[in-house]
């Protein structure tokens, strides 16, 4: 398949306070590919997402988005094109409806609020109709997570970074969400998850080794790749 490369990590490393969290990470993600990134907690998985969004700067290596280096001007473009669901979606306080209005008032998201689509997605993901009137801070972890997923889907973007996006859902819902994302062939998915529901035949699993165990470095940051490329 000849597809455009969307994301490329080239020998990317990260050092916090002289502690190596990540080193020599290589990965290329092409349009439409689905990648499941696995690894122990603390291995720097979330950091890889944050680098792409410009929330962290790699201390080593290079990072490219659509073949251009991710720098301070590029990140603003990436943030308009990529839908990110973080481990704990934090929308703030107040009625969900009001918080959604604010999000869809941002310039790149104008006209993206489609009440019908919202209604259908809420039904698909088993969210009660009155969830929109509730205060976000009063929702359960699972409800918050689904709101995060819902927003990502409403934005109408085609590249997704999902960081443990389904961890608080029950197995049935995990499956529903995973299937929903995976059935869109054109979508590029970069997923961090421990949930088995994501593992399917058209997903490529990338294993990330933890860099430091009890203060000693183990391994050279080599990735074990399963599945076809």
């Amino acid at each position: 398949m000849m597809q455009d490369e969307i994301i490329r990590y080239e020998g990317v490393g990260m050092t916090y306070n002289s502690k190596k969290v990540l080193s020599g990470f290589n990965l290329s993600i092409k349009g439409g590919q689905k990648i499941l990134l696995k690894g122990k907690s603390g291995a720097g998985k979330s950091t890889l997402f944050k680098m792409l969004l410009g929330f962290e700067k790699p201390t080593d290596g290079n990072l490219y988005y659509r073949n251009q280096p991710v720098d301070s001007s590029r990140v603003w473009e990436i943030r308009k094109e990529v839908a990110y669901v973080s481990q704990e979606t934090d929308l703030g306080e107040g009625p969900v409806k009001v918080l959604l209005e604010e999000i869809f008032s941002y310039h790149p998201n104008l006209n993206k609020m489609d009440p019908q689509k919202l209604h259908i997605l809420m039904q698909d993901f088993e969210l009660e109709e009155d969830t929109l009137d509730k205060n976000y801070e009063d929702l359960s972890g699972g409800e918050k997570q689904r709101i995060g997923i819902l927003i990502a889907l409403m934005l109408g973007r085609e590249i997704f970074l999902l960081d443990e996006a389904t961890s608080a859902l029950d197995s049935e819902l995990k499956k529903k969400v995973a299937e929903y994302f995976l059935k869109h062939g054109e979508w590029t998915l970069f997923i961090i998850s421990h949930d088995r529901e994501w593992e399917s035949e058209n997903i490529r699993v990338v294993e990330l080794k933890k860099q430091i165990g009890e203060g000693k470095q183990i391994g050279e940051g080599k990735q074990i790749r399963k599945g076809g490329i």
Binding site: R79, Y84, E102, Y106, H107, L155
Partner: peptide
């Protein structure tokens, strides 16, 4: 304290001032 909330708003495509408005 609520840095993640701010970063999340940035990730949604908000400009700096939009994300900071709340």
């Amino acid at each position: 304290r609520n840095e993640n909330r701010y970063l999340y708003n940035l990730s949604l495509g908000a400009k700096k001032y939009e994300a900071l408005m709340p």
